[in-house]
Amino acid sequence: MITMQNVCKTYKVSKRDAGFSSALKALLHREYELIHALDGVSFTISEGEMVGYIGPNGAGKSSTIKILSGILTPEEGTCQINGLTPWKNRIEHVRNIGVVFGQRTQLWWDVPVIDSFELLKEIYRISDHTYRRNLEQLSEMLGLSELLKTPARQLSLGQRMRCEIAASLLHDPKILFLDEPTIGLDAVSKLAVRDFILKLNEEKKTTVILTTHDMQDIEALTNRIILIGKGRILLDGTISDISSGFNSTEEGLAAFYKSHNI
């Protein structure tokens, strides 16, 4: 069970005009602009649910994920995940979550993938039994057996993403955060990743929260979507709320963005 209530997060961004003289001026006197990345965000997600978290670039998706996973501390608001506040009980909290950042790797670049997995086993204190069982299951579902002995730098993006997802599930997390998991993947890999997420949610009842710009991901995976723009929740509902009356979800979404000026 995840509840977020009235969470606010602001960033201080320094700004200056182009040109050398304004660069000099900025050296002496910095002007800051406050960016409200999150402006009173509230929602509830129950156990075993699969939720698509969408919005344009810079809307606050990543900030939300980072707060939920205990990386950032918000200025205001409360957040409870299975009874814990992520930024206060960080270590206890992160034991129960898995995080995949689509654009960043957690695998060691120069060593075989299996070595990275072994290190994770140690970091999360996974028992031999659980580790072997999960590794077997995951490599079967994601087709990893060929890849495990290859250094991460020699994998294709699709292969690497499958390994990334496996890496964040070795410790049986109750909640999985996926930040743009299908970005840059070819059709085959995309389908494989989607299939896997569906199965995971069905079989293990893992709560999945995913951010993406790919509406087909959302259509294939979730009923519920939360739409954020300029740091505010604009819609908490289903895909049909957006797509009804349009030829595709994409068009509906674009029209929605336009009508809200985001």
């Binding site: 996973s69 960080r90 992160v94 950042f101 960043r104 957690q106």
Partner: peptide, 13 residues
């Protein structure tokens, strides 16, 4: 490089 984000989502000091 965002490595510190990764460090913070691991259950270790």
């Amino acid at each position: 490089q965002g490595e510190f984000d990764r460090i913070l989502v691991r259950p270790r000091n």
